[in-house]
Computed example of a mutant assay.
Amino acid sequence: MGILYSEPICQAAYQNDLGQVWRWVREDNCNINIQDGFNGDTPLICACRRGHVKIVSFLLKRNANVNLKNQKERTCLHYAVKKRFTFFDYLLIVLLMPVLLIGYFLMVSKTKQNEALVRMLLNAGVQVDAKDCYGCTALHYACKMKNQTLIPLLLEAGANPMIKDKNGESSLDIAQRLKFSQIEFMLRKAL
């Protein structure tokens, strides 16, 4: 089912309804950065939660503020990095894997889509080292998820692997603790 939003444009962005998002923006351009009454999500954050690249692109072209934070103090980048495959994605991948590697190509396609989403946000000027309510940056989450495709993008954009979260742990500490040697190497190289 997902999340329910009090703001119709936020609900439309979350549900990937570009027509409705366009309608709400056309009606009042202030809707672009409106924050939902429940959790403070903006339409951009809603679209990033689900990885809706077309809606993110549409909102960015209309100057949506990439640095607005919700009640958990997260920006759209936090959600873009935290985006995981859905249960349905995994099911399709597993079912289609034996069929001419379609499952593999679906997985690669979803990964590339997420990478494109993060690139769009970085190009739009999102603060790469913004901390959430736990003191975590997008790089913290990318390390926790062992996301070897997003970590180089974040580092290239100037992410600092030494920023500590509220538990006193840096992205580098996470990579060491979880024994992700390739990621640890990438982070050390960026210092």
Rank of each mutant, 00 (worst) to 15 (best):
90 Y>D: 11
35 Q>S: 08
66 V>H: 00
37 G>D: 14
59 L>V: 05
31 N>W: 09
105 F>D: 11
63 N>A: 14
97 M>W: 08
75 T>K: 02
67 N>L: 01
101 L>R: 15
23 R>A: 14
76 C>A: 07
78 H>I: 05
64 A>F: 03
62 R>L: 05
42 T>I: 06
76 C>P: 06
109 S>L: 15
86 T>A: 11
52 H>M: 13
39 N>Q: 14
71 Q>T: 05
95 L>W: 12
44 L>N: 14
32 I>T: 06
63 N>E: 11
105 F>P: 01
46 C>F: 04
81 V>C: 00
41 D>S: 08
106 L>I: 14
50 R>T: 05
49 R>W: 04
60 L>D: 04
74 R>S: 08
51 G>W: 03
107 M>H: 13
86 T>Q: 10
95 L>M: 10
90 Y>P: 09
37 G>K: 07
74 R>N: 09
72 K>M: 10
29 N>C: 06
100 L>G: 09
104 Y>Q: 14
87 F>A: 11
37 G>I: 00
26 R>F: 01
90 Y>K: 12
28 D>L: 05
50 R>G: 02
48 C>V: 15
104 Y>D: 14
103 G>Y: 06
35 Q>D: 10
58 F>T: 00
107 M>R: 14
72 K>P: 00
94 V>A: 08
43 P>Q: 06
46 C>I: 04
75 T>A: 06
22 W>D: 09
45 I>W: 01
42 T>D: 03
81 V>Y: 11
50 R>L: 00
75 T>R: 13
41 D>R: 01
107 M>K: 11
80 A>V: 05
72 K>E: 08
72 K>H: 14
59 L>T: 03
95 L>G: 07
78 H>R: 05
69 K>D: 09
40 G>A: 12
106 L>K: 03
23 R>I: 13
46 C>V: 08
78 H>P: 13
68 L>W: 02
39 N>C: 07
98 P>H: 14
98 P>M: 06
95 L>K: 09
27 E>T: 11
